[in-house]
Each structure stands twice: as structure tokens, then as C-alpha cells.
Design a protein around this nucleic acid. Structure first.
Lengths: 228, 228
DNA sequence: GCCGGCTCAGTGGCCAGTCCACTGAGCCAC
DNA sequence: GTGGCTCAGTGGACTGGCCACTGAGCCGGC
């Protein structure tokens, strides 16, 4: 193994860091205004275009709000390290994804049991029916599976948790396909879904959480991970 | 109530959406290359500068990787709706933050019990000692409290969960200050921390998770939420 | 006195054009 | 085959400019 591929920074990333550091050291907090773009760009020694990119990154991250004709305001306390960490946090391995999924989705199942509306239940049932039909016809039920988990997530009515789920949705999909390709898996997975749905319908948070935890353990048990 | 503040789009946001939509309809998937910037900008009818902003947004969101001198590659399956939703997902209320915190941190405590290194334990103890000293001197121990939770998060060694915690850290801080300002709270909070630390040190995941859950329930019980 | 509209300075939004730096493929000398 | 060179293609960044929006202050009509 060599010394690694020497992390090359894009300029805007450095700008993000500098702006955050400066803001923190200046004691700025939520609601405070950043200097005007022209001024800020000049003092940082970069062009407005580059600064604009850095501001997009900060905007997407939820650190600032850029208001046309008015200015740029800080939305959170500036903390250089954490934001940079968030920018870097790609490429987590499958284990980390499953951990996160378990933490989020078990909790969401519990919330769903308490909060599900009739519409939520209908969506869950529809996903269940779709998967059952597919599996009955010899399919793997991948689409129905995904639909089911999305419906449960929606039924939890927790915007933050739903957002985190969305962030890892793609990587969950990979493991899903892997899992459902195994002999007998689609059928067992479907049973797990029914148990979860029943608990949610019954309004039993603990049972729903437990059922979801069991289901995820089953699903996570792919050969790749050494399970059998 | 009026008709609402007419969501005003920045151009780069529209570009993000268009690029994603186009990529999806073209059947592009992870690993596929986007057209060259000049070409893409031209076909979208925007300048390269604007496209560059859109690419920053997609990069920060983890959808693409932009490689100097090579090109821009898709990292995930393009799904227009989810990415836009992530961009909008600001302003969650306090309840949602506490829900998310509970889901994440309870799991992290359990992981920490299994994975903590000696260094992790030292950091946890240091935070504990700092808070104890502050509380003993009549302080509220806010800094030590934050430090403790950060140390536990680090000890969980789960990059994804840690990243999610970082995303809500600011909003947790607000509730923390609120909670520790109440009579007798710092002392009880410190006890909770000791219980968590003991379970982590003992390597008992269930106990650590339970202790963390109990602690968060205590801390979340602020007058603002109707607790008492 | 109040309210509406106007003006203006300051701010961000976006653009075209230009040059620089990097990557990877192909070629060639050795 | 190995190393270095060249070159086309790609992203990185800057400059300088113009447009659109916001908010404060002014001023008129009422």
C-alpha cells in the first residue's frame, strides 16, 4: 500500500473552511450577516465565482441562507470541522450503512405505529400487496420491498429521520437486491413485512420496532458479510 | 394566511433538477459520465459558472464526483425528487430533532460499548471530569455535557451516524442549554452520564443503550414541551 | 397623520470570454 | 517493456460586466 492519493482540495472547499473559521473566530452566530460577496471575495483573495460555489455548498449544507438583494445570513453556529467532515463523508462501507439503517428505521417503525394515518396504512398495504403478487409470480419483489420501506418511513412522520433515510436510500438499494436474490428470501422478507405492518396497524410501537429490527437483521445477513 | 412566499428558485437549483431528470431519463447509472461542462452548459442554456454551482450542490450531496481533467461521474442512481427534498429539508421543529437524536444516539451508545478504544474511554472520562468540576462549582456543565456526547459519538465509530449527529448538533445545543438551566438538572444529567460511561466501559451494549435512552428522556423533558 | 409610490444605494444572480492545470491515451526513443 | 513526451479533452479559476432584487428613505396625495 502506498501513502494514499493525496487529497486534492477544490478551492471552494478551502473557502468554505476559511469562511467558517473566520465566522467562528469573529463570534458570529445564527442570524448574523456575512460580509458582502464582493468584499468577502476580495478579502479571501478569490473570485466571486469561486465564492459563489462555496456559498452554494454552505447553503446546501444548511449553514447559511443567501438572499438576493439582501445579503447572506448565518443559520447555525459555524463549526469548521463538522461541515468539512460532512463534505467528506462519502464512501462509507456497507456495515456503516446497515447500522444507520437499523438505527433510523427501527425508530421510524415505532413512530409509525403511533402516527400512521389511514392513508399511510393504505400505502403500506398497497406495497405489501404489490410485493406479494410479485413474489407469488416467482419474482423477487424488489420494487415492492422498496415501496414498503418508503411507506413506513413516510408513516413515521419525522422529517429529519426521513431525510436521513433518503440520504442512504441508494446504498440500501444495493444491499436489498443482493439479499432478495437469495433462495427463499423474498418469501421470508414478505413475512417480515406483514409482521411490521400488523404492529403498525395495531398501534403497538414496541412490537413494530422489534419486528423491524428482526427484519433488518434477516435482510442484512448476506453472504458478503459472512452470514449463513 | 396568504398564498405563501412564492418559492423563488436559484438557477442552479433548476439546473440540478434538470440534470438529474435528464440523467434518469437517459438511463444513466452509477459510474456513467455526464457530458463535458461546456457541452452540458450549452445544452442547458446556462453559463459554465452556473453549471459549476449546480455541480457543487450535487457533489456536496454525494450524487456526483467531479474529477479535474477527467470528467464528472455519477455516483448514485439519479432521483430528482429526493435530492431536491434534501435541499429543502431545513427548519425541522424541536420534536423532530429530539426524535432523531434519540434514534441515533441510543444506537451509538450501544456501538460504543462494543467498539470503544482506550482513547475513547479516556475522552469520555475527561468530559465527565470536566462536567463534574463545573457542576461542583455551581456551573451548569454545558460544555462538558456537549463534550461527553461528542466523545460517545466518536466511540461508536460509525461514520454515517456520526455525520447525522453532526447535522443536528446545533439544534441539539439549543435544547441542551434550555435543559441544563433548570433547577437540579445538571446534577441529574451528570448521573446519567456516569451510568452511560459505566455501561460503555463494561462493554454492555444493551445497558449503554438503555442508559442513553433514559438520559435523553430526562434531558428532553423541558417545560417548552409540556413535561414537568 | 398616514399611506402609497418613487428613488437609490447596496447586494446577490448570472453571463461571456479567457487562460491555467490536470488526466489519459498514444507515440516514440531507448 | 519501460520511461518520457505530446496532445486533445476536461475541469478550475478569474475578470469584468450587466441585470434583478431588497430595503430604507423621501415625497407626494389624501
Amino acid at each position: 500500500m502506498g501513502p494514499g492519493p493525496l487529497r486534492r482540495n477544490r478551492l471552494y472547499e478551502q473557502v468554505v473552511h476559511q469562511v467558517l473559521t473566520w465566522a467562528a473566530s469573529s463570534g458570529l452566530g445564527p442570524g448574523d450577516r456575512l460580509p458582502a460577496e464582493r468584499e468577502l471575495a476580495a478579502s479571501l483573495g478569490v473570485s466571486r465565482a469561486t465564492l459563489a460555489q462555496a456559498l452554494v455548498a454552505l447553503e446546501v449544507t444548511g449553514v447559511v441562507a443567501v438572499r438576493h438583494g439582501d445579503g447572506t445570513v448565518l443559520l447555525t453556529a459555524p463549526r469548521p470541522d463538522s461541515v468539512l467532515a460532512a463534505l467528506d463523508a462519502r464512501r462509507e462501507d456497507l456495515g456503516a450503512v446497515i447500522e444507520a439503517r437499523e438505527a433510523l428505521e427501527v425508530r421510524l417503525a415505532g413512530l409509525a405505529a403511533r402516527r400512521r394515518t389511514d392513508g399511510d396504512l393504505a400505502a403500506i398495504d398497497a406495497a405489501l400487496a404489490g410485493m406479494a403478487a410479485d413474489v407469488g409470480a416467482g419474482g423477487r419483489g424488489v420494487a415492492g420491498d422498496e415501496q414498503f420501506h418508503a411507506a413506513v418511513t413516510a408513516a413515521g412522520h419525522s422529517p429529519l429521520l426521513a431525510r436521513f433515510m433518503a440520504e442512504i436510500a441508494d446504498r440500501i438499494r444495493d444491499s436489498r437486491i443482493e439479499s432478495l436474490s437469495q433462495e427463499g428470501r423474498p418469501h421470508r422478507s414478505l413475512e417480515g413485512h406483514r409482521a411490521i405492518a400488523d404492529a403498525i396497524r395495531a398501534g403497538d410501537p414496541d412490537a413494530a420496532a422489534a419486528a423491524m429490527a428482526a427484519h433488518i437483521h434477516l435482510v442484512s445477513d448476506v453472504p458478503l458479510l459472512g452470514g449463513g
